[in-house]
Amino acid sequence: MKKPMNEMKVTFPSRSANEGFARAAVAAFLSQLDPAVDELADLRTAVSEAVTNCIVHAYRDEIGMITIHMKLYADGRTVIKIRDRGCGIDNVDKAMEPLFTTGGDDRSGLGFSVMESFTDRLRVSSHIGKGTVVTMEKYIAVRHRQARVV
């Protein structure tokens, strides 16, 4: 596997005010690829869902740390890992079903559906009592970078 051309890691506590920070951090790092408006908005939305899941579910009754590890590859592939050390998901397949939620009345149960729709690949790995890692991949079209160089 090729090495990433650039990467970043950011860790922050599971306070809901950090949802906006997580989106901004990912967007700022991605800006070096000169993404299209839609590509940027897609990733911001997907990251927002993943981080919200950590806050609402993984650390339901506590504040814990969330880590975002983002890697950029030369072919435009962008990999974002969002990790928590929270309660873990009992049944990942069930949790990923559209509309399934344990979050109460005002949660739509569409977090994973949004992540799936707005990225090219989504993987979820979880262990009860140890935490969850959500890995999302999205290709950022290279045409923008070429256009800028020319």
Partner: peptide, 13 residues
């Protein structure tokens, strides 16, 4: 300027 699935919950509720 930005909305994730929380907006869906807001509307449904």
């Amino acid at each position: 300027t930005f909305m994730d699935s929380s907006g869906i919950g807001l509307i449904m509720g």
